[in-house]
Nucleic acid binder design. Structure first.
Lengths: 245, 245
DNA sequence: CGCACACTGTGTGCGCCATACACAGACCAT
DNA sequence: ATGGTCTGTGTATGGCGCACACAGTGTGCG
């Protein structure tokens, strides 16, 4: 049985495993302060605007002081993620699994929209921080009452998770500016029309001939999101049907 | 109508829009050489091992010489991607859409397995390079013969694309070393067992009680891949059914 | 009550990175 | 032949993550 000592320091901090009453000066701030400062920078300037020195400057401390709270830059990302998402939405167990997981997916999507830089964070390892686990748990509980096994629920939850991440990636192509999405979208459609000639790329060309609603894949708005999500959920539904028959 | 002049230089090079017979010395090499060198570095040392200077050294040239072929580091990534994937697999139009898109998905997954660093590349804009478009086209053509509209096919293809990327992300948690995955997986399960207590995280705990086959989500092997993919395809199938009725 | 020592934030410095810029030479259209 | 353009190179700049030594601080133990 592993003890909490072996946990990376960041996780110990995030879970509140603080061994208080130690010698030495009191810490001048807390990792949550670091998170706030870093998120503020990322929200306005993207993830590239987040550097140890910038975060430290934002807090009014020196760069190296951050390393007393965070072992490396990657840990800073963990703290940012944990803080940016916050606690998951409360799902109504009275509703069906489909409504619940949809609400969960939409909340997740909204979180990604509010903090687009999340998608730019290099994913290094699966999450272990409190809020991240709480989101996982909420997603799993949406399937309470279904005949799905725990492993099936995990797969289903991950499927929805992957879908939301993926579509968010397509939508906000990393652009922090507001309507830069639209112009980038038009430019992309233009270039695609030029390059994907019907003779060599008939399938792509067919897609372009009757554009969905204004633009190409980049324009993945709310309706389109629900449409794709429904497809995913239909797949899960069919698995449930198979179990019930 | 836009002309090819407005295209980024990398795309012009990749599409072979070379305006030959110009003054000045002949180029000493080609972007494909850059791609080969960069991929070699990335395959052995991960994406972090790819820097302008390292690639240049690998080629036996100076760092700055690369900028005669590539405008910025991001363009290097584009070239790497284009080269690493190569041409898409040939699908047999005689088979059903399900077998075709499955073969496509598996080929895509194999590509990601062969070059795990692809998942670490920061996605900045949708692809426009020849092979990338060819992969898109191949995925779309898998749905030839179905009643799906071009937009539906695009959505379906993107759905599968997203699924493969997402699961690959979960599987190879960025580790280039071979069986480091396994030990990381065990460690993760350990920590998750410790942190996700059944009282506060019953859903997660239930997942851990009857582990699937050895490990947790990280162990997303071939069977698991097909299982999840089938769920996605079932969703697409149900949409097809709705169109046909 | 005092003291040892763990812990704090700070300053300096290293190696690496992407890339701007000026330059000497190579080559083709004229 | 020659002018202008393109080549690869050398040098330089600003930023980055982070190692390390240091002076000061406050707590638990004697």
């Amino acid at each position: 049985m592993p003890t909490m000592e072996e946990l990376p320091r960041v996780l110990q901090q995030l879970w509140g495993f603080e061994a208080r009453s130690r010698p030495g000066p009191k810490p001048a701030f807390h990792i949550s302060d670091i998170a706030r400062a870093a998120i503020k920078l990322a929200d306005t300037g993207g993830l590239t605007a987040v550097s140890m020195s910038k975060v430290a400057a934002e807090l009014g401390f020196t760069t190296m002081s951050l390393y007393r709270y965070v072992d490396a830059k990657d840990d800073l990302y963990v703290v940012m993620l944990e803080h940016a998402f916050g606690v998951p939405p409360e799902l109504d167990p009275g509703e069906g699994w489909r409504q619940q997981i949809t609400a969960w997916a939409e909340a997740f999507r909204d979180g990604l929209r509010a903090h687009p830089w999340i998608l730019q964070i290099p994913v290094q390892e699966p999450p272990l921080s409190p809020n991240q686990l709480a989101w996982m748990e909420a997603g799993l509980q949406a399937f309470d009452g279904t005949p799905l096994t725990p492993q099936d629920r995990l797969s289903a939850m991950l499927l929805v998770n992957i879908y939301v991440r993926g579509t968010a990636q397509l939508t906000a192509n990393m652009l922090t500016e507001p309507d830069a999405v639209e112009v980038a979208d038009r430019l992309y459609t233009q270039r695609l029309t030029m390059l994907a000639t019907p003779d060599r790329f008939p399938g792509i060309a067919a897609t372009l001939e009757v554009p969905p609603d204004g633009g190409y894949a980049g324009d993945f708005d709310a309706a389109e999101f629900g449409f794709g999500l429904d497809t995913v959920l239909d797949g899960i539904q069919s698995r449930i049907d198979r179990l019930e028959s």
